[in-house]
C-alpha cells in the first residue's frame, strides 16, 4: 500500500476525560484506503522534548464523511501537546503504516475482541469491518477504572460489549481475562490490543483453548516504515519490525 506524508485538517477534537481524547481529521481530497490494524506516525509541532513522530493506531475511518479518527492517551509531552490542538489546526501524518488484522482460514461464528485502555483504538475499526461483513462480535473491554473505558457507545453499534475494571467501578471487577463470558461462551477467533501483560494473558487463554488469535503490538519506533529497525519483536522468524511486519501478529509467531 502506498504511504503518504500529508497535512490533514482537524475537523473535531473530542475530550473524553482528563487522560483521553479523539482527533478527527479530514482532507480536501478523498482520504486513501486504510485497513484496520494500521497506524499513522504523527508529527508533534512546538514540543521541544518531542523529537520523533508518535505512532498512533487508526481508530476508525468514516469514508462517507471523509474522516480519520485517532484515539490518544496523554502519556507525555508529545501527546499533551497533541491534546491542545483545536479544530481547524493541521496535523502532519505519515500513513497508512503497517499490516492489518486478518480472518482465520475458516469462517468464525463468534469473534472476541479484547481491548485494554487506549489499546481498544484499532478494535473499533476492525469490529466495524467484521460487523459489516456479517460476523458476530463481542467486545470485552477493560480498564483500571470506569474512566479508562472508552467509546463504549461506538462499540455497541458493532456487537455486544462487556466490560471489566480493576477497581470494580464498572462491569465485572478484575482483569479482562477474569470475565465470566470467557467461561460461559465459546469463541472461535480472538483479537486483542492493549497493555502487554493483558495481551499475553489473552494469548494464553486463546492458546489453551486452541483458538485463532492475533495481537496488535505497540513498540517504540523511530520511523514507522521499516528503515530504522528499532521496533523489533522476537518471533519464530527472528527479529521482525513491528512497524512493517506488524503491528498485528498471530500468537503462533510470537515468542511469548
Amino acid at each position: 500500500m502506498k504511504k503518504f506524508m500529508s497535512d490533514l485538517l482537524i475537523s473535531e477534537m473530542i475530550r473524553l476525560n482528563e487522560q483521553y481524547f479523539i482527533i478527527k481529521l479530514t482532507a480536501e481530497d478523498k482520504l486513501p484506503e486504510m485497513l484496520p490494524g494500521q497506524f499513522a506516525e504523527i508529527k508533534v509541532e512546538d514540543s521541544p522534548s518531542t523529537f520523533l513522530r508518535r505512532p498512533i493506531s487508526i481508530n476508525f475511518v468514516d469514508y462517507e464523511r471523509n474522516e480519520l479518527w485517532l484515539l490518544i492517551q496523554i502519556v507525555g509531552a508529545g501527546t499533551l501537546k497533541l491534546s491542545q490542538l483545536r479544530a481547524g489546526d493541521s496535523l502532519n501524518l505519515i500513513y497508512p503504516l503497517g499490516n492489518t488484522f486478518s480472518l482465520p482460514d475458516f469462517k468464525p461464528s463468534d469473534i472476541l475482541l479484547v481491548g485494554g485502555g487506549v489499546g481498544i483504538a484499532p478494535l473499533l475499526f476492525w469490529g466495524a469491518k467484521l460487523a459489516s461483513e456479517g460476523y458476530t462480535c463481542t467486545f470485552l473491554l477493560g480498564g483500571r477504572s470506569e474512566s479508562n473505558l472508552l467509546m463504549l457507545d461506538e462499540f455497541k453499534r458493532y456487537g455486544t460489549v462487556v466490560v471489566t475494571t480493576e477497581d470494580g467501578s464498572s462491569g465485572e471487577k478484575g482483569y479482562v481475562t477474569d470475565h465470566s463470558i470467557l467461561k460461559t461462551k465459546q469463541f472461535d477467533a480472538v483479537y486483542t490490543c492493549g497493555p502487554t501483560p493483558m495481551m499475553k494473558a489473552v494469548a494464553a487463554y486463546a492458546a489453551k483453548n486452541k483458538l485463532f488469535c492475533e495481537v496488535s503490538l505497540e513498540n517504540t519506533m523511530a520511523c514507522g516504515f521499516g528503515a530504522c529497525l528499532c521496533c523489533v519483536t522476537d518471533t519464530t522468524d527472528g527479529h521482525l519490525c513491528v512497524c512493517t511486519e506488524g503491528p498485528v501478529f498471530p500468537i503462533t509467531k510470537l515468542k511469548w
Binding site: P48, S49, T50, F51, L52, N219, T220, M221, A222, C228, L229, C230, C231, V232, T233, D234, H239
Partner: peptide, 8 residues
C-alpha cells in the same frame, strides 16, 4: 529490544 531511546 528495546533498541531506541528518544533524547533531547
Amino acid at each position: 529490544y528495546p533498541r531506541m531511546a528518544e533524547t533531547p
